[in-house]
Amino acid sequence: MPVEIDIAHVAKLARLDLSPDEMEGYRSQLSVILDHAARVQSLEGEPEPDVTHPLGMVNAFRADEIKSSLDRDEVLAASPESRDGYFVVPPALES
């Protein structure tokens, strides 16, 4: 059973600006991989999906204590664009 993939939709969800050619390439590779991955459906029985910690850790919390923050200049120095203590990005929506 071939796996259907709306690659343009997936690329949009993942915020990846791909050319039509690239998308077609990834779509065909993904379908091969997903065909193989679909073998998970051959599992017999219906065990509960396992998302527990292997050592059974639960309730890992920290106390409500303030720790020192990073130096702002150092933080902003790593960013592509900043101004007056803020990170700067282009506007949110198409105008």
């Binding site: 939709h9 997936v10 999906p49």
Partner: peptide, 28 residues
């Protein structure tokens, strides 16, 4: 890029149970 696309697909609406959910069962 390939793996991001793959993972996004496996979690997306309509495919989650058959792929990601089932993979977690295999993990069990």
């Amino acid at each position: 890029t390939r793996r991001i696309l793959l993972g996004t697909y496996a979690l997306s609406a309509g495919y989650y149970d058959a792929f990601y959910g089932q993979a977690q069962r295999v993990r069990s």
